[in-house]
Amino acid sequence: MNIFRFLGDISHLSAIIILLLKIWKSRSCAGISGKSQLLFAIVFTTRYLDLFTNFISFYNTSMKVVYVASSYATVWMIYSKFKATYDGNHDTFRVEFLIVPTAILSFLVNHDFTPLEILWTFSIYLESVAILPQLFMVSKTGEAETITSHYLFALGIYRTLYLFNWIWRYQFEEFFDLIAIVAGLVQTVLYCDFFYLYITKVLKGKKLSLPA
């Protein structure tokens, strides 16, 4: 464990909690892409199948449980509890264009041709593009609530910090996982224009609005 990975996990956890609280407190999931949340639930499910078979540490296991439980809770709030506030008309990204290519790629490029490893690889590839429906929805509605932009910032920063974690691990542990690194780079690049808008607008107290 190193500071970058720890801060990355904290950032990821806070993004998940910000979203849960936003929906629960405001009793509304307006502006939130249910499709991205569905993809995140798939990402965590396919990545943490070794939850019971492969104990790394108490921290690792408890974080996995929290991630899986909170992602299902978020999907449940969007599609069940507060579905009346779900903005389906603007959440129209074709997720099959994300799921199918990443599934095929996970069969072609992986570390081990075993079910668990292919599912892990699929989860890594899917996570790198899972935010696209949400970013697409923000660009379609032309704006995002400030709390939603904080959620997106924390979520984007988490994988950016992981990039530094991989530099650290390459340097000091001679460990590197090219699949995770390349996917992490793609994931971070997808946030770049959002990061720009967040830093130039939201941090100056303005509302996040995209040029429609």
Binding site: R5, D9, H12, D50, N54, I56, N60, M63, K64, Y67, H111, D112, E117, W120, Y162, N165, D177, A180
Partner: peptide, 10 residues
């Protein structure tokens, strides 16, 4: 193929 180390990252 070398036994792949278990993934220790979240």
């Amino acid at each position: 193929h070398a036994v792949h180390i278990p993934h220790d990252e979240l």
